[in-house]
Design a protein around this nucleic acid. Structure first.
Lengths: 324, 324
DNA sequence: GTGAAAGCGCTAACAC
DNA sequence: GTGTTAGCGCTTTCAC
């Protein structure tokens, strides 16, 4: 910047004003400065600018469990698009559901002076969030309940979505099975509750013989679905996540049957398989976009405004026989 | 840091040494400093450290066309994992194939003092790369040829992959059609060349009636596939990208036929559809990982080493009837 | 409208 | 082994 000032024959400060877009600059000088910048190939150092009081890095952290998971990458994409429009860039990192990795990444992000972070709390918990010293940049939790009292949170209505799906299945079919992963996972628990809600609404109880929670991997989901089919009791299946849905489809194919099925979370193959698969769809775009909005709001009016808890509703997408 | 030093009763520099893990510190002092840091909730400011000569931001930029695209998010994931192990964080941004957006993001990244950037060159070109002033952080281009002479580049063997697939189809079937997007897209052009290679190898010419390059969207891919089917000439199809493959599958379903098919790029639905779909698979993990390695190598030995051009081979994954 | 000097948080010399 | 000083690139009072 000194060089630019020398080249243009003005003071350092004038160059600073120029690059910051301050209005009060003599047009002739502005031109000289612009030329000098081009000639010297000057590039601004935002890191240096950001250490001044009142200045920020214009960078936001995004901590998710796995960037390669379409669910999260879609959220990331939406958040990035919105924040980019507002002049922010996103540092994206994957915690791999590991509490320690997550904690380390949070520290790294804070050390890099991010203005805020958007976080998917990992399943395996590390240090409690409440132990993170104030003051720190605003944190917005998404997808799962905040592990911190009174924090901004955006989640989907897992329970309501499951209720709607199971209710629809139960209207036509006697024995609706629940095929999912461990109930110790928040979203699973919620979807299971929704499953129960739908039955209780009809004055029925959950039948343990129809509940399978061992779909930890696609392989196990397949095995669980097979067991369910061979037991012969289930007349319809609610698959509580993508893995379970895919496992059920494979089991159907192998057994040569096809039970009515509704999965949770949409996926590409759902419209390709015949018959097409009905799903409870989450609006990941909306979640990413909303997370960005909440962050921007916190950053704008830096007030200690009331924390926001947003519950995004799900959409039941009926395809195949369920659509009739 | 001043506060920490005061609290611990040591000099500023000793605290600096401590947080930098310098060995030569009196254990008693180290303990006092550690306690003071905890007590005060001190967090290091890496931005301030990074403006010192010889220090860097430990941050790397990743510029891709669309984070929500599984192909790119998978690359991003692999690169992130490798770089995280090396102490780097990734600023990820989507150019949306727009040259101007891309150029702006490159500038933003450089201004934020990233140590290097990994770039997917956008289709619509903005400013020429050669006009970007030296010196600038190392740039590694991936997925498409570098728009800059002598730059590190990692691409997949699109041509060879297509050749292999078409060769296999042609061995059993008389008229293999090419279903793809515009040939002005680099990867398409390469795959089309591979298609031609396979035919020429048998002393045949490309039959224009069997070539369709209008699969710009899934809808158009579907329409193009339908046209191909109804013309009745094609006896097998090489679908040059995911969109084309999916379009072909929809057309098959609607017409109640199933031609031998090999797609380019693997996708989840490929194993779910019956019969399963054979594909030419790119190793996105390897591409991301390798991009990270090349970056680290440039950063380590900051030598002006020879530029690397890596061509990753593809894998032909045979499923369904093609597997017989 | 423009410039000189001070200082953001940090680290590298260079003493002690 | 530890402290003092200067300065990284930038922006901001506060004079002119």
């Amino acid at each position: 910047m000194i060089d630019v000032a020398a080249e243009a024959g003005v003071a350092l400060k004038t160059v600073s004003r120029y690059v910051n877009g301050a209005g009060n600059i003599n047009p002739a000088m502005a031109k000289r400065i612009g030329d000098a910048i081009t000639k010297l190939g000057y590039r601004r150092n935002l890191a240096a600018a950001s250490i001044r009081p009142g200045w920020t890095s214009k960078t936001i952290g995004l901590l998710i469990s796995d960037l390669a998971n379409p669910y999260y990458s879609s959220i990331a994409r939406a958040a990035e698009a919105r924040l980019r429009d507002a002049g922010y860039l996103l540092i994206t990192a994957s915690s791999e559901e590991d509490g320690d990795t997550h904690d380390r990444l949070v520290d790294s992000l804070f050390e890099r002076q991010v203005d805020a972070i958007i976080v998917v709390p990992p399943r395996s918990s590390g240090r409690p969030w409440s132990s993170v010293r104030e003051p720190h940049p605003p944190v917005v939790f998404i997808d799962r309940p905040a592990p911190l009292e009174g924090a901004d949170t955006i989640i989907a209505d897992n329970r309501g979505g499951a209720l709607e799906a199971v209710d629809l299945l139960r209207a036509k079919h006697e024995h609706v099975a629940f095929l999912g992963d461990s109930l110790s996972i928040y979203t699973m628990q919620e979807r299971y509750l929704g499953y129960g809600d739908a039955l209780r609404r009809r004055g029925e109880q959950v039948d343990p013989a129809l509940v399978s929670t061992s779909a930890h991997s696609e392989q196990e989901a397949y095995a669980a679905a097979l067991t369910l089919l061979r037991a012969g009791k289930a007349t319809a299946i609610f698959a509580a996540n993508n893995r379970a849905t895919v496992g059920a489809l494979r089991a159907f194919a192998d057994e040569g049957v096809r039970l009515p099925l509704i999965g949770f979370d949409d996926f590409e193959a759902a419209t390709l398989v015949r018959p097409a698969v009905s799903v409870v769809s989450q609006n990941t775009q909306a979640m990413g976009h909303l997370a960005a909005e909440v962050v921007l709001q916190r950053l704008d009016r830096d007030t200690a405004a009331d924390s926001r808890l947003e519950v995004l509703s799900t959409t039941l997408v009926l395809r195949g026989s369920e659509a009739e």
